[in-house]
């Protein structure tokens, strides 16, 4: 693939990767999910600063989740798999639906894309549907695209139930 060009092949590859992530979360294939991320991946869910804007600087402002390497994802999976987390037993069921995937730019090994996601959750408290805006940065590692950065703007502002990695 030529650096800098967004062709159909790249668009398909990106869309498949985002869909694959959603599938792995819904099917609780946590280890394969983590493998989609680079070692130094940043996973960021800003908090809302007010009704219209999220926080913008994750270092100096509050976030809902801000993980600065893949270990942060491993922590979440460790907690889920421990079966010792009150909020995670029983585990909520989820269905992620991804849409509007757009490759925004491609530069060498780095690709940026955005997508929308609706997550239908069913759990102890019944069902809910929640929306998120995704911004990805991918990096090609040994030929395969990996997630190097994922920013999730979770549009709900009055959170019902726990919000863990599989809810987002």
């Amino acid at each position: 693939m030529n650096a800098g060009r967004i062709d159909d092949g790249l668009e398909r590859e990106v869309a498949a990767l985002i869909a694959r992530e959603a599938m792995l979360l819904d099917r609780r294939r946590w280890d394969e999910w983590i493998d989609l991320y680079t070692e130094d991946a940043v996973y960021w869910v800003p908090a809302w600063a007010n009704e219209e804007e999220t926080t913008t600087d994750p270092e100096t402002q509050l976030n809902l989740i801000y993980l600065r390497n893949r270990g942060g994802l491993e922590d979440r999976v460790f907690r889920i798999e421990s079966r010792d987390s009150y909020a995670s037993v029983p585990l909520d069921r989820t269905v992620h639906l991804i849409g509007n995937v757009l490759v925004e730019s491609a530069n060498g090994d780095s690709v940026e894309a955005s997508a929308n996601c609706l997550v239908h959750v069913y759990g102890k408290k019944g069902a809910a549907t929640r929306g998120s805006l995704y911004d990805f940065r991918f990096r090609r590692v040994d030929g395969a695209l990996k997630i190097a950065r994922k920013k999730i703007v979770f549009i709900d502002d009055r959170l019902e139930g726990p919000i863990d990695i599989y809810h987002l």
């Binding site: 800003p46 908090a47 809302w48 600063a49 926080t55 509050l62 009055r158 959170l159 019902e160």
Partner: peptide, 10 residues
């Protein structure tokens, strides 16, 4: 600090 989080408890 900027940012807050609101949650509902049943």
């Amino acid at each position: 600090v900027p940012g807050s989080s609101t949650y509902m408890i049943r």
